Amino acid sequence: MNPLLGAEQAVLGSVLLDPGQLSHLDWLAPDHFYRPVHQALFAALRKLRNDGHPALAAEKSVPLSWVTDAVEEASLHVRGLTAAYAHTLISACPRPAHAPVYGRMVLEGAIHRTITEHAIRLHQAARADALQGEVEGALHYANVLTGALSDLARRWGTEPRPVAPATPPATTPATRPPVRTDQVAEDERFLLAVLAERPGAMDEVVGWLRPGDFADPAHGQLYRCLGALHHRGEPIDRITLLWEAQRRGLLADGTLSSDQLTAICDGVGPGSAEWLGEQVMRSSVTRTAATSAHAIRALAENETLAPGQLINHALHALGPLDEVRTRWQTANGRPAPTLPAPAPSPNGPPPAQVHAALARSTPRPVSSPSARPGSAPSPAAVRPPSRGHG
């Protein structure tokens, strides 16, 4: 049996056997279940609990109406659910008192699945933006992914913080989003020509444009040479640029040739360094978003990663995109939007996180049937044929 399917069935079976278990699963949501029929049934059970179903006041055995009413309510939202399947779920539950642990397994599967889905959406948005020469879609879905990671961290009971993996995951090479290759290369060459031939042009872009923003590594190295000349306060022209490239070994190792550099500098015409730099930044944003999405998806598909590790590693993988986004906002004269994040308490994690962590990790001791209304039936009572329902 698939472990996740078994966990989902065990959670539902425990609640069907003992409605009181719902009070220990407040951190679990219907959409954390993978199967739609399980989502509908868990939502129905919570609705019956909120509506004050008589089964909650049962002193001994749980009335059969708890099962039948739950199936009836869930059937309003999903097809294929029968009372027979509800009893299959009951049979799949070894111990109702272990519901919080089963729920933890469901939540763990949901965390991996949710992060994978958001990473796919981010990658798709980056591809679409790259084709259209935009960045808004990728940045929007990056914000959505960051918010989802914070919410999952809260439910899991951990403090969200970027943490680099001890060992980078083994992944296939990231597929770069489709871009208007010719247009991007032309923008980069034109920008470099303007920066090499126009005094003061570097001042327009040096504060936010970086060598890594260039799609062509050779163009990035040439921009690094321009930045070095500007930093040292030396004059910039095609001769000093060629000399700097030679000093850095770019001509010797084949990264650049003197003919390539001459061709770039000869292509100068009227143009704004700031505007051209923004075009280069657009391409950089979408490429970085695609790379981050690819890395996060690879992490989420690694089932051996604990949820807390996965969340923190995913936040770390978003770091390069956050850095590029900040510089993009600077280039456009707008401050980068900041997502509200809870400040860490000096005395430890917030109480809600502690409660979530304990609730999902600590099984509730099995109590006797007479201990409280709605308590879990004894082991004998939870076995076929009645499964504790009278």
Rank of each mutant, 00 (worst) to 15 (best):
G207L: 11
G220S: 01
R189Q: 03
L195S: 06
H219V: 04
L261N: 10
A245I: 01
E244H: 08
A245N: 00
W243I: 15
A228W: 12
P199N: 05
A201N: 05
L209G: 09
Q260A: 14
R238C: 01
R210T: 07
R232C: 15
R247Y: 09
Q246P: 00
D253M: 03
R232G: 14
G227K: 10
A252H: 11
F214M: 00
A228L: 12
S258I: 12
L191Y: 06
L226T: 04
I236T: 11
D237K: 00
G249K: 01
D216L: 02
R198S: 10
R198G: 10
G207H: 14
E197N: 14
D216M: 09
A228C: 12
L226F: 01
E204A: 14
A228F: 12
I239S: 13
A218Y: 05
R247E: 11
E188T: 06
R232A: 15
A218P: 01
G254N: 02
A252M: 07
L241H: 00
F190E: 14
F190C: 14
L222H: 05
Q221S: 15
D213F: 07
L229T: 04
V206C: 14
L250D: 04
G220Q: 01
H230L: 08
R198C: 10
L256Y: 03
H231A: 15
H230K: 13
M202K: 09
P199D: 07
L241Q: 07
L209T: 10
R248T: 08
Q260F: 13
D259G: 14
L242M: 11
L222P: 03
W208V: 02
F190Y: 15
E197R: 13
D259Q: 13
A245E: 03
L222Q: 02
P235K: 05
R238L: 10
V206R: 15
W208F: 03
C225T: 05
D203Y: 15
S257L: 00
P217I: 00
